[in-house]
């Protein structure tokens, strides 16, 4: 009930914006190729629905594979760096610095190395996704309750039990905040990857429509990207609700 109440004001804001936009484009008579009206965009979406469905499916698939691989990489890095403090001090600072390298800048290099198949695209998404997951998880693993740790040690717990029963469950909420960031990044990564060269996907569709000056279709593509990002984000939130238990929700 309350979530409906909270969703109402922003929904009204969006409706007002769209109405204002429609009004402006109609009254000013601005060219459609420059700024299409909302109704132009809806028409474009309807005209293109078959092509759009195909491209959306392709991008969704790429996003999910990339997101999965990125999360797996991030968790693996976090666990390894957590369990091996020696490796951690040697690698963690480099990892942070490496984030200053824009993915867009190395993407062409990936194409040179890995060709035009799915491999370079997955690597792009992994590169943008793994870092927030790794950092958030590592942080959560390292900040578990020292009092509970003492209790467990005095009760005879070994390192494996300390990890599985204390550190990992403790890290779950922090891990999920990393996952939420990565969820949004993953769609962005997929679009960039498709710009690099692809025969399908919303990213490739955008490149073509840009050359054709079809702003209306570009708007449709942007809307789809936003919706995709929201869906992946929603999936993560759902998973969080199912796994993170027993904390005060405030």
């Amino acid at each position: 009930m309350t979530s409906v109440k909270r969703a109402l004001p922003p929904a009204i804001t969006v409706l007002l914006l769209i109405a204002g936009w429609q009004l402006y484009t109609t009254l000013s008579g601005i060219d459609t190729w420059l700024l299409p009206s909302p109704s132009d965009i809806l028409t474009a979406a309807a005209d293109q629905r078959e092509a759009l469905a195909r491209h959306t499916l392709a991008t969704a698939e790429l996003t999910l594979y990339g997101f999965g691989a990125g999360v797996a990489t991030g968790l693996f890095v976090a666990v390894v760096l957590h369990l091996l403090p020696g490796v951690r001090v040697a690698i963690y600072p480099l990892l942070v610095i490496s984030q200053n390298v824009p993915t867009i800048a190395i993407a062409p290099l990936l194409v040179v190395w890995l060709g035009f198949g799915i491999a370079p695209k997955l690597v792009v998404i992994i590169l943008v996704c793994f870092f927030p997951v790794a950092v958030a998880t590592l942080d959560g693993l390292g900040r578990s309750d020292a009092l509970i740790a003492d209790y467990m040690l005095m009760s005879g717990a070994n390192r494996r039990q300390l990890f599985t029963k204390l550190q990992w469950p403790h890290a779950l909420p922090t891990m999920f905040s990393g996952l939420k960031i990565a969820a949004t990044y993953s769609v962005l990564g997929a679009i960039i990857a498709e710009w690099l060269g692809s025969d399908k996907g919303i990213g490739q569709y955008m490149i073509i429509q840009k050359s054709a000056f079809r702003a209306d279709r570009l708007f449709v593509a942007i809307a789809i990207v936003v919706i995709l990002a929201l869906v992946v984000f929603g999936l993560v939130v759902l998973l969080e609700k199912l796994t993170v238990k027993g904390r005060r929700r405030d």
Binding site: L147, I148, D150, Y151, M154, S155, K165, P169, G246
Partner: peptide, 27 residues
């Protein structure tokens, strides 16, 4: 050595993500 006593710490040190019965059986 570790694992020879039943210990109750100064603060309860319960795991917030475990139910009460799961906390009780931790040791």
């Amino acid at each position: 050595k570790r694992g020879l006593i039943g210990y109750m710490p100064q603060q309860p040190a319960l795991m917030p993500w475990r139910t009460i019965e799961k906390n009780v059986v931790l040791a």
